[in-house]
Design a protein around this nucleic acid. Structure first.
Lengths: 143, 143
DNA sequence: GGCTAACTGAGACGATGTATCATCAAGCGT
DNA sequence: ACGCTTGATGATACATCGTCTCAGTTAGCC
């Protein structure tokens, strides 16, 4: 799902499409990785110079509520990324390094789960976490 | 994995087992749900009266790095829970409501993934997210 | 073009998380 | 059992984060 489609989804859900919101969405879309709110603010100001901090937080929260953006815990606080389908990755809890995965053992479950729960399911995250080789040494984790 | 086992893992990894750390671990263990750092502080002070804020943050970060606790994004900030095996749930992005799931399509992948990546894999999270029936109405999401 | 409700930016505010530092005590060796 | 050594602690100060309020603006609809 690209930035243009997200803008349409916002509209379809009854929200206005403003320069501030477009700037936030496009900043997230161009980054291609998760961004901290402060990074979103910096990047989005290139497109919307006077953009305020509060608006960035409001927009990120709105996108997350609608399932269009994904908040992820990271060292240093929560980061956001646009939801481009589902997310599968292997994350190092020590340094934050990531390896994307191309497996998906969960896709077939979504429809059944939605039916049984009444939820409107926007996607899923499958995240394996642990320590990368470097951090295994650095943290003297002997397991 | 209960609190006692976690304490042993800390020791095994070369860290000291102090009253402050035990209080944090036991507070998380007894809660049985994810806690915000401020809640951890309040609960842990019952066991370790003078406990300081900085120590709680330090301990939570340490536990997360070692894969013994899990930071999760929630409305209001990051929350932590002890890692009791893997986590599978369905989460509402609107209000934070959760449904635990008893499926696990990913368990069999861990060993192969660890071998190929060199990571020490502590566990995984499979999280479906979307909107619960209430929030679908409240946010006028027409999807 | 004008209306109206949703949205915005500014600013103030409390909460959150980190850095520093003197003091303390866990765990080890004896 | 007792000291040592060094990692851990609590207090404090500080920077940042995230929220709230409010007056002014503007997107979307007629």
């Amino acid at each position: 799902m690209d930035a243009r489609q997200l803008e349409e989804k916002l509209r379809a859900a009854g929200y206005r499409l403003t320069p501030a919101r477009r700037a936030v969405i496009q900043a997230l879309g161009e980054a291609g990785r998760e961004l901290a709110p402060r990074e979103v603010l910096a990047a989005a100001r290139a497109r919307c110079p006077g953009l305020g901090r509060a608006t960035v937080y409001r927009t990120l929260r709105l996108l997350a509520q609608l399932g269009l953006a994904l908040p992820l815990p990271a060292p240093g606080g929560i980061r956001y990324r646009l939801l481009a389908g589902d997310l599968h990755r292997l994350v190092c809890r020590g340094c934050g390094a990531q390896l994307p995965l191309d497996l998906c053992p969960a896709r077939g479950l979504t429809a059944r789960l939605a039916e049984r729960s009444g939820y409107l399911i926007a996607g899923h995250v499958l995240e394996f976490y642990g320590l990368c080789p470097d951090c295994q040494r650095r943290l003297s984790c002997v397991e």
